[in-house]
């Protein structure tokens, strides 16, 4: 059980953003991805999650071991907190809805519709989803957006608990989560060089 990324190149809109990205993530470890806006953090994470194809390189992870959380939380406004979470638990075939709500401090809100949650509460609910997927590798894109200081600390605790159970986390963030044990990978050096006349087969489009 390990996530290994080998000389990965990713592209958005036909333009290669990052290339030669290599790292490995062992159980119990977290990796923070940093880099300026537009460097390709989201694209890299979506590629790892299998949502878009890689331009080159390889991602090896056990099948169905990744779960992805991004800017959009996948919440349904007309469903309650518990229903939203229960749906994702059922999709992944695991339980623990009550436990997930307790750990993300959502128990008081369990019967409230997602439409009536504040932005931060929605975010907490979106992150609580990670706990009901039963998947070891968390791929998180700016997970702390709209969270207050207390919630950031709460979430850092949840991530730490996940790591303690042998889980892994890959987090793109600008905010210091307080996960001092996590390694940091700066993506700026992997920025794809603009190549002129690469001579590839479809060169005219490169």
């Amino acid at each position: 059980m390990e996530l290994v990324v080998d000389k990965l190149a990713v592209a958005r809109g036909g333009v290669t953003l990052l290339e030669g990205v290599s790292f490995a993530l062992a159980p119990g470890r977290a990796l923070i991805l940093r880099g300026p806006n537009g460097v390709g953090k989201t694209t890299l994470l979506r590629t790892l999650a299998g949502l878009q194809p890689a331009v080159a390189g390889r991602v090896s992870a056990p099948p169905e071991s990744l779960t992805y959380a991004a800017h959009a939380d996948g919440l349904k406004a007309v469903l309650t907190v518990e229903e939203n979470l229960g749906f994702w638990a059922a999709i992944h075939g695991v339980g623990g809805v009550g436990d997930a709500m307790a750990r993300m401090n959502l128990l008081d809100l369990r019967d409230r519709r997602a439409a009536n949650l504040s932005a931060g509460q929605k975010r907490r609910l979106g992150l609580a989803r990670l706990l009901v997927t039963g998947r070891p590798i968390w791929v998180l894109d700016e997970p702390t957006v709209s969270l207050d200081v207390a919630s950031v600390a709460l979430f850092a605790g949840v991530v730490r608990g996940h790591l303690a159970q042998g889980g892994m986390a890959l987090i793109a963030t600008h905010i210091d989560l307080g996960l001092d044990e996590a390694a940091v990978l700066d993506l700026a050096p992997f920025k794809a060089r603009v190549t002129v006349g690469s001579g590839g087969f479809d060169e005219a489009f490169a």
């Binding site: 809109g13 036909g14 333009v15 603009v194 002129v196 005219a204 489009f205 490169a206």
Partner: peptide, 15 residues
């Protein structure tokens, strides 16, 4: 093809 090449060149220039 020319249009594609042009937009590729423009994208390259932006980068």
């Amino acid at each position: 093809i020319r249009a594609r090449r042009l937009s590729a060149l423009l994208a390259r220039e932006r980068l």
